[in-house]
Write a protein that binds this DNA or RNA. Structure first.
Lengths: 137, 137
DNA sequence: TAAATATACTACCTGAAAGTAGCATTTAGG
DNA sequence: CCTAAATGCTACTTTCAGGTAGTATATTTA
């Protein structure tokens, strides 16, 4: 009941980029700030760039920055790109034909929590995460 | 953001046993009723028996049944045995020193949902899942 | 134009979850 | 006592997330 490690990395990186608007940050600096394996992070950033979530500059002094406004990038977009959103449509017990009309024993209890998590993903932007005066650990 | 498949199997099997109190059910019959790979289910049931969640009879006409009262077995016990409960103490972004006092950007939003899920696991018994007139898919 | 520094691409390695298979062991009952 | 039917144990296989490594390519700048 958690994000894949790669999704954690992706959200970390996107949040960090959102905190440094207008700056182009290299994989090296993200690696050092966020403690994510350098080579693995490089491939991840390429994926995020290809998905259009960040813009990229090649060559010397290259790197990544948030592609659009921080308030137009939602958490679900990051999760979708990395691990997909299939889990949030899935029966909690894995029954293929579980549904509201034909629920498994845990369905009703689970769906309530699941919808709350979905709301978090679909309604929270990177800008929203900036608003609170929370320190990055 | 889901249970491991094996945890799904375990909860399915426990719920099914809880619906047939006093009956000793073989791996074969559980396999046929729940569509879980036969051999894999056999090993899983052994684990649940060793953990004390079900009682077991060997030999001909052997099988498993709920070990105690249905209302004294909580979902968290099943999840704990199969995949552990570490995820529910973990930072959603994987920062090792994230905490209430030193939160990551998502901490406060996530903890609310996480605690609700923990409550579901720690407060729901197999008997509770019986009470609602829901059909097993 | 050449060196430095960055991303992009490709191949490989590792560990764990999920699944398969065979044989040993236990028990009921004719 | 023997056989059928069940669990228990052990080993192997498959798949994929996560991680490592080397090289190609792009861009800045001295």
């Amino acid at each position: 009941m958690r994000f894949q490690k790669t999704t954690e990395y992706a959200i970390r990186a996107m949040v960090y980029l959102a905190k440094h608007p207008g700056q182009r940050l290299s994989t090296r600096s993200l690696h050092e700030s966020l403690d994510i394996p350098y080579k693995y992070l490089g491939r991840l950033m390429s994926r995020l760039a290809e998905a259009g979530l960040v813009s990229v500059e090649h060559g010397k002094h290259g790197g990544y920055q948030i592609s659009e406004n921080r308030d137009s990038i939602y958490l679900y977009q990051i999760a979708e790109e990395v691990e997909g959103l299939e889990d949030y449509e899935r029966c909690i017990l894995g029954f293929p034909d579980c549904s509201d009309e034909h629920p498994c024993a845990l369905h009703d209890r689970w769906v309530a929590h699941r919808e709350n998590i979905k709301a978090m993903l679909y309604e929270t932007t990177l800008a929203d995460l900036e608003e609170e005066p929370t320190k990055q650990p």
